[in-house]
């Protein structure tokens, strides 16, 4: 197993942009755009779990889907094992589709209600020829067992399962094609807390056993802390900080990251830290003002912040990058 800290990059994302046009007017012209992802650059190293955290609407889900070309990027480059994904046609994408899979957030809409588990898994497996025909049924049974379900689940319909079980099925689907890279788009956000832990542990085990690389998206920093190796903090379509999860509490410098950390309740009743409450409004994703998107709420804001967008720069510690004028050193 390669050490994530020094492993080669599996996925390289450069200046990725994703905008959604908003249509209106008489002729249905484009009247404005939702700037979901605005020039994002990062690497995912082989064998690591990279987290992406941010509040609703910051563009993390969009990022996850664009990276595997579920959504088409508006601009930017995506390289997988060095190959430029953003340029490939439908047919050339096929081998990559097999290697890159996704787990969705909502267990109630992520499974086709008309297909049994078996049919659903079979569909993708046969399409890609991942497993020879004669072995498919055994393979399916094994998959189901791997995600912690009984083998009679294979011939049931989605509505016969609970939310947590459906997520397991969703995971099974993602694993069916023997992928290398998985985008997990808030896979536990819709589940009860007790189930969350089970699913997360399952994912960890699977990652170890199957040598997976995971891009883990969540709005819950506690989950990310527990689960990921490194984390990207996103705000309004930009990455504002990138650092390793071990060092999260000690080394986070961006005001937003610190606010997120402060927002987490701490178990210790004697630890009476001051709460950093953010004031101000979130700017509109339709028409973002120039400058740092966090300027409206930042306690360290300067004039410069409102006019110019701070670049994401490396800091002294390896693997730590920040985009903020106020914390230059």
């Amino acid at each position: 197993m390669s050490d994530p800290a020094t492993a080669p990059a599996l996925l390289e994302v450069r200046d990725l942009v994703k905008h959604f046009p908003v249509r209106g007017g008489i002729l249905n012209r484009v009247v404005s755009r939702v700037h979901a992802v605005n020039g994002v650059t990062f690497d995912v190293r082989k064998g690591e779990i990279l987290g992406v955290v941010g509040e609703s609407g910051c563009g993390k889900s969009t990022l996850g889907k664009t990276v595997i070309r579920l959504l088409e990027p508006t601009d930017g480059q995506i390289r997988y094992e060095g190959k430029p994904l953003h340029e490939l046609g439908h047919r050339d994408m096929m081998p990559f589709r097999r290697k890159m899979q996704i787990i969705f957030q909502d267990p109630y809409s992520s499974l086709n209600p008309r297909l049994t588990v078996r049919k659903m898994l079979r569909e993708g497996i046969r399409f890609h020829g991942s497993v020879p025909e004669a072995e498919i049924d055994d393979y399916i049974v094994e998959l189901i067992r791997q995600v912690g379900l009984r083998k009679d689940a294979a011939d049931r319909f989605p509505h016969e399962f609970s939310g947590g079980q459906r997520q397991r099925i969703g995971i099974a689907r993602a694993l069916a094609l023997k992928p290398e890279f998985i985008v997990a788009d808030e896979p536990v956000s819709a589940l009860d807390v007790s189930i969350q832990a089970q699913i997360l542990n399952l994912l960890l085990d699977l990652k170890e056993n199957l040598d997976l690389t995971i891009l883990f998206i969540s709005h819950d920093l506690k989950v990310i802390e527990h689960f990921c190796d490194r984390v990207l903090v996103m705000y309004l379509g930009h990455i504002v900080e990138e650092l390793s999860c071990d060092a999260l509490h000690e080394e986070a410098v961006h005001p937003y990251t610190k606010a997120l950390l402060g927002a987490n309740p701490i178990n210790d009743p004697d630890d009476r830290r001051e709460l950093e409450v953010l004031e101000g409004d979130v700017p509109s994703p339709f028409d973002p003002p120039p400058g740092c998107p966090f300027a409206g709420r930042c306690p360290l804001v300067e004039d410069r912040c409102r006019q110019e967008m701070p670049p994401l720069v490396d800091r002294k510690t390896a693997g730590h990058r920040v985009a903020c004028w106020a914390v230059e050193e």
């Binding site: 579920l70 589709r97 890159m100 996704i102 957030q105 909502d106 809409s109 992520s110």
Partner: peptide
């Protein structure tokens, strides 16, 4: 807009 349709796209179906 449902996710299982997106999942099918992710698998690579036309």
């Amino acid at each position: 807009e449902l996710e299982y349709i997106q999942a099918a796209t992710a698998i690579g179906f036309s």
